[in-house]
Design a protein around this nucleic acid. Structure first.
Lengths: 234, 234
DNA sequence: GTCTATAGCATGATAGAC
DNA sequence: GTCTATCATGCTATAGAC
């Protein structure tokens, strides 16, 4: 059971290096560097810079020269890790999917009641997107420009996330503990609400709202609609 | 009082030609065409194509050659309407702001109670973004790449929209007809929920949900959280 | 007012020295 | 493994014919 961001972060312990090591092993054919330690270290800087610059100007507007300057690469060195610019997107995208689905399924699986599954899923999603905000932002913004197979994959993952929410809501309705609402629409709404946390994070920072507060607020809204605390939502 | 999309659409009656005529008059210095009828007709095609292509690939990825081919312009002809590619963004952006704020203030002003103001505001925003979906999508996606003054303007308008919601919620709380919730956070959440209608419209189309259904659903969620219909949200 | 032709430049990608 | 130098391409923007 998740209660706040700090404990979630410790439990998950996703270091950049570990993620990039997995990434390196997944993409061994396209990466021409033999030494794993060297490659992993460079991948960390490469992906950091790509996410940062893309967040500022968009992927198309980021030139590979900008990227090299920011990451401390030469243009030739960069091409030891990718075959072309598109490969950067594929590299970044593939990994986040695994983590997202794995995390959501872990935390909904842990819980016993539909109510706890739902609150766990919301918390897990908000907290994960807090840790990996640049990735979530990138993924949202750049999906439309992906080549067809990657685009299909991205849409499928988003659908899968919504399905997780949908199924939990249906379970609760059938068990008689939730109001009889439109589960499909509420699942989409959950996604939309969680999405804003990584799309407009600076706005919430300005309001002085942190990830735990935001997640609890969303949970309050959803609970009141489902009739779980019908009297007085905080 | 708004009840459904069709009546809203008739009342608003925003034709493309009228919008582009206003646009032409606003940007007379940069547009080098004297004949208003000719200019307005071309602006309609120009903006239509820009919104369409940008929606597919993003603004940066859209070349002016693509745009000319799509809109039936020559590259030279295009430059009679803009001084550079950025001007296209400014041209498109400025107008939508006026319409959005004007519409929201009109419909909240019409209503008497905070509850009606709130439902009117949600309906007006969802319906307006239904009519001008490509514009809302464009505005969301391209704001980050705008030059500083336009970016400030875009953020200010978004803030103003949230303020309208915030103020109505506070009114309701002070009048004792709404639960005592975090008004700032709920206003942001309203924006996030309405936002998904133009960001992910095709998803909702797949679910068979139309604008009226979506707006009523959002209203139901917000009402239940505010304790207006505490018993049984539809 | 609209077109074609082209200048001038920045980009993605490669070749080959070290 | 990493660098510099360079190629070919496609872009925005302009000049000048019609």
């Amino acid at each position: 059971m998740i209660t706040d961001f700090e404990s979630f972060k410790q439990e998950l312990s996703l270091s950049k290096v570990e993620i990039c090591r997995e990434l390196y092993r997944q993409n061994r054919e396209t990466i021409r560097i033999k030494n794993e330690e060297v490659a992993v270290g460079n991948l960390v800087r490469l992906i950091d810079s790509t996410l940062r610059l893309t967040g500022l100007k968009g992927f198309e507007a980021m030139s590979l020269r900008d990227l090299c300057a920011d990451a401390g690469f030469s243009i030739g060195g960069l091409y030891a890790y990718i075959r072309n610019k598109q490969d950067l997107v594929i590299l970044i995208q593939g990994h986040g999917f695994l983590i997202t689905l794995r995390t959501l399924l872990t935390y909904t699986g842990q819980a016993t009641s539909p109510h706890k599954k739902l609150t766990n899923a919301i918390m897990a999603h908000v907290f994960l997107s807090e840790i990996m905000q640049p990735w979530f932002y990138f993924s949202f913004m750049e999906t439309k420009s992906l080549p067809a197979p990657q685009k299909r994959q991205a849409i499928a993952v988003e659908q899968k996330v919504e399905d997780i929410f949908h199924d939990v809501i249906v379970q609760g309705i059938e068990a008689g503990v939730f109001n009889d609402v439109n589960a499909r629409l509420l699942a989409s709404l959950c996604k939309a609400m969680m999405q804003d946390w990584y799309l407009k994070r600076s706005k919430y920072a300005r309001q002085g709202v942190d990830a735990t507060q935001y997640a609890r607020f969303l949970i309050g809204v959803v609970e009141s609609y489902l009739g779980i605390y019908p009297a007085n939502p905080q």
